[in-house]
Design a protein around this nucleic acid. Structure first.
Lengths: 199, 199
DNA sequence: ATTCCAAGAATGACATGTCATTCCGCTTTG
DNA sequence: CAAAGCGGAATGACATGTCATTCTTGGAAT
C-alpha cells in the first residue's frame, strides 16, 4: 500500500487542495484560474490535471473539506445529553465558541464557506445546512421531551433559524475582533434562550 | 427634459435591468453573458453598451435595485411607534410577512440577493446588512426605553442576529410553499420574542 | 556500489472555446 | 439630411484542458 510514491502523491494532492482553498478565498472562485493555483505551488499547471479531473472536481473537493471542518465542530456535542436548560445552554455556548474558534484558526475555510460556496454548489450548500438543522432539531426535541424547553416549539423551522443564527455568528467573527465575537455569542445565546421580551 | 427620445431611453434602460436581473437569477452572475441579456430582449448586444458602461456597471445597478426593493419592505414600519410588546410583535409580523410576500412577488430579486450578490459585491452586501441591522436596532432601543423589552439586550449584536433571522426566512420562503413559509415566520417570531426556554 | 532502464510524474506550448468590449455600416428619427 | 440609435461581426484577452516531450525515481543487473 503505502509506497513512497503513493505517499508523495497523496501529499501533493493535499497541497493542491490547500492552495486552491487559499486562492478561492482570496480571489473568489470564478476569478481563480487553475494556473493561479499551480503558480502558488510553483508547479506546472498541467500537473494539476494529474490530481484533479477539472476545476469543478477540485471545487467540490475543497467544499467538502470545508463542510467537514464545520461539521466536526457543529456536531461535537451529544444532542440527548442535557437534562436542564443550563446544561443545554452550556452546550450551545461550547458549540458557538467552537465555531468562533474555527473562524480564527481557519478563517480561509470559513470565508470560503460564506462567500464562495454559493458560487460552487448552491444545492449542496442547502443540503448541508439542512443536515446541520436536522442535528440541531435533536437538541430541541430532547429539551422538549425533558420539559426544559418550550413545549410549543415548532422544531423544524426553529432549528433552521438557529443554524442561520450560528452561521451568522461565524460570519461576524470573520469581520471583527475576539471581543466583538464573544459579545455577539453572548447576545445570540441570550436571544435564543430568553427571547427579546421583558419579564 | 422629458423628450420622447429620453423617455424611450429610460424605458429601455429599465428593460435591460429587468432582463439582467432575470438572467442573473436564472443562470448566475458569472454564467450570464451580455449577449444573453441582449438576446432575451431581442436587441443587439452592442446596444447594451449604449445603456451601461460594462458588465460591472449593470451588476451594481441590478444589486441596488434589489437592495431598495428589500429596504422598502424592511424599513416600512416606524421604529418608535410601538408602546407594548404586542404592538412590536405585530410590527415584526408585518415586516416578516412583507418579506415573505416579496419572496413571492419578486422571487427573482430575492434569489439574486441570496445567491448572486455575494459574487457581485460582498462589501456592499455587508454594508447593506449593517444598515438594516442599524434600523432594527432602533426598534430594540425603543422597546428597551419603554420597558417592554429585556433591559439587558445588547442592542447591536442582537439586531444583527435578527436581521440574519429575517433574511434566512426569505431564503426559506424561496424554497418552500406558502404554508411552510408562514410556519417559519411564526416559529421565527416566537423564537425572537419568547426564546426557547420553557416557562 | 555503480550503471542502466522502464514506469510514471511533471511540464508548458498549444488548440479550443468563451466572453467582454469595440467598431463600423446601416437604419431610424427629428 | 444630419445625428443619434442600433445590430452584430470582429477583436483581443484569457481560461480550460490536452498531449508530446522531458525529467525522476527506485529497483534490477552487473
Amino acid at each position: 500500500m503505502g509506497t513512497r510514491a503513493q505517499e508523495r502523491a497523496a501529499l501533493r494532492r493535499e497541497e493542491i487542495l490547500e492552495a486552491a482553498e487559499r486562492a478561492f478565498a482570496r480571489n473568489g472562485f470564478h476569478a481563480t484560474g487553475i494556473a493561479d493555483i499551480a503558480a502558488d505551488l510553483g508547479i506546472g499547471h498541467g500537473t494539476f490535471y494529474r490530481y484533479f479531473k477539472n476545476k469543478h472536481d477540485i471545487a467540490i473537493s475543497v467544499a467538502e473539506r470545508v463542510f467537514s471542518k464545520l461539521a466536526e465542530v457543529a456536531m461535537s456535542e451529544d444532542p440527548t445529553q442535557a437534562n436542564t436548560v443550563d446544561e443545554y445552554r452550556a452546550q450551545t455556548e461550547r458549540i458557538l465558541g467552537g465555531m468562533l474558534a474555527l473562524s480564527r484558526s481557519h478563517p480561509v475555510a470559513v470565508r470560503l464557506f460564506h462567500e464562495q460556496l454559493v458560487s460552487i454548489d448552491v444545492e449542496r450548500l442547502s443540503t448541508i445546512l439542512e443536515t446541520y438543522a436536522a442535528f440541531t432539531a435533536l437538541f430541541l426535541q430532547n429539551g422538549i421531551d425533558k420539559g426544559f424547553l418550550r413545549a410549543n416549539i415548532d422544531v423544524q423551522p426553529t432549528s433552521e433559524a438557529l443554524v442561520a443564527l450560528i452561521f451568522e455568528g461565524t460570519r461576524r467573527a470573520l469581520r471583527t475582533d475576539d471581543d466583538e465575537a464573544r459579545r455577539w455569542a453572548t447576545a445570540g445565546v441570550r436571544l435564543m434562550f430568553d427571547g427579546v421580551t421583558a419579564r
